[in-house]
Amino acid sequence: MHSSTRVTLPAAFEVAEIDYLALLIANMLERLIAHNDKIPLLPESLTRFHSRTVPNISVLDYLRRIIKWTKVEKSCLLLTLHYVDQICARIPLFTLSSLTCHRFIISSITVCSKGLCDSFCTNALYARVGGIPVTELNVLEREFLRAIDWRLMCTREVLQEYYINLIRTDSSGRFGLEGAESEVEDSDMESVSSRSASPMDVQVRHRPSFSLLGTREPSSVPGDTATLPTIEQNMAFAALQHSLKKPP
C-alpha cells in the first residue's frame, strides 16, 4: 500500500510503477462512474456488460486483483481507457457505471492481452480472476470486439497522452510528473496545454463523442481518438442533457 505523500511519476508510462497506474485509472473511472450512476438507466441502454447488482469490490481492488493474477501489461491497462472512448463514441447509449465497469474491465484486459501481448492467460483464468463464469466471458469477449469494431491497436503516443491526462486530472492531488516544473517532452506539454479550454464551452458548441482524452488535432492513425473531448466534457454534456429533459 502506498503512502499518501506526494509522488513524482516518471515522464514515460512504461517506467511508472503499475500500482500507481492502477490508482490513477481507478480514480478516473470512479469519478466517471459516480457521475454516470446518477443518469437513469433506460431499457434500451442495457448491454451484456450490465451486472444485476453492483459488485462488492472497488474498481481499484479489482484492477489490483487482475494485475496480481494475470500479470497484465501496463499498456493494456491504459488501452482500457482507449476502448472506453471507442465504445462510447460508437454506442452513445453505453455508459460506464457501477453495473458495467467490472465486466468491461475484465473483457478489455482479456481481449487486449490475447490480441496484443506475447504472453497471456486462458479465458478460464481471466474469468476466475474476474469473478464471472467462463461461458459469460466468452460472450462478453465477442460482444466487446464487435463494440470496438475489432480495432485493438493504438499508438504509443495516444497511450502516453492518457497517462499525462490521468496525472493532470487526478482528484487526489498526490501525483506530479517528473520534470513538469522545468521542461517535459514538448509533445506531452502540448497535449496538456491543448486541453486547457473550458469543457462546458466545448459542450455548448458541439455535441461531442465521449473521451477520457483531451481534444487534439485530427489524426490519420486508424483507431486514434484524436478529436474526442475529455471526461470532464463527457460529464458536462450528460448533465446538460439531463437538465434539458426536466419539465419547466
Results as ranks from 00 to 15, higher is better:
residue 108 S to Y: 11
residue 111 V to G: 01
residue 22 A to I: 01
residue 109 I to Q: 08
residue 44 E to W: 04
residue 69 W to L: 15
residue 101 C to Y: 04
residue 99 L to Q: 09
residue 103 R to C: 05
residue 220 S to T: 14
residue 67 I to Y: 07
residue 82 H to S: 10
residue 77 L to S: 03
residue 215 T to R: 13
residue 2 H to D: 12
residue 133 P to H: 02
residue 57 I to W: 00
residue 164 I to D: 15
residue 160 Q to G: 09
residue 13 F to P: 05
residue 30 E to T: 13
residue 90 R to G: 01
residue 173 G to H: 11
residue 37 D to H: 03
residue 85 D to E: 09
residue 141 E to K: 03
residue 70 T to S: 08
residue 74 K to P: 01
residue 145 L to E: 10
residue 230 T to P: 00
residue 55 P to D: 01
residue 166 L to T: 13
residue 228 L to W: 15
residue 126 Y to K: 09
residue 97 S to N: 10
residue 100 T to H: 00
residue 17 E to L: 10
residue 23 L to M: 09
residue 125 L to W: 03
residue 244 L to T: 13
residue 133 P to M: 08
residue 26 A to M: 05
residue 156 R to A: 02
residue 167 I to P: 10
residue 225 T to V: 07
residue 45 S to G: 07
residue 173 G to T: 14
residue 37 D to S: 04
residue 180 A to D: 07
residue 152 L to Y: 02
residue 248 P to N: 14
residue 149 D to Y: 12
residue 109 I to F: 09
residue 193 S to W: 12
residue 8 T to H: 04
residue 39 I to G: 00
residue 46 L to K: 07
residue 74 K to H: 08
residue 208 P to N: 08
residue 183 E to F: 14
residue 131 G to H: 12
residue 124 A to R: 13
residue 161 E to S: 06
residue 164 I to H: 07
residue 23 L to W: 02
residue 159 L to W: 04
residue 202 V to L: 14
residue 20 Y to D: 14
residue 211 S to C: 09
residue 73 E to A: 10
residue 69 W to Y: 15
residue 183 E to Q: 12
residue 25 I to L: 06
residue 186 D to K: 02
residue 176 G to D: 04
residue 248 P to V: 00
residue 139 V to P: 00
residue 71 K to H: 12
residue 129 V to P: 08
residue 140 L to H: 05
residue 110 T to D: 11
residue 134 V to L: 01
residue 224 D to N: 14
residue 200 M to S: 10
residue 241 Q to M: 11
residue 84 V to H: 04
residue 166 L to V: 06
residue 132 I to K: 12
residue 85 D to I: 01
residue 144 F to E: 02
residue 118 D to R: 08
residue 94 F to G: 02
residue 96 L to N: 09
residue 69 W to G: 00
residue 238 A to G: 03
residue 193 S to Q: 06
residue 88 C to H: 03
residue 160 Q to V: 03
residue 49 F to T: 01
residue 11 A to W: 06
residue 84 V to L: 07
residue 191 S to T: 13
residue 3 S to N: 11
residue 83 Y to M: 04
residue 176 G to A: 12
residue 64 R to V: 04
residue 67 I to A: 06
residue 34 A to P: 00
residue 39 I to C: 00
residue 27 N to L: 02
residue 60 L to H: 13
residue 165 N to H: 11
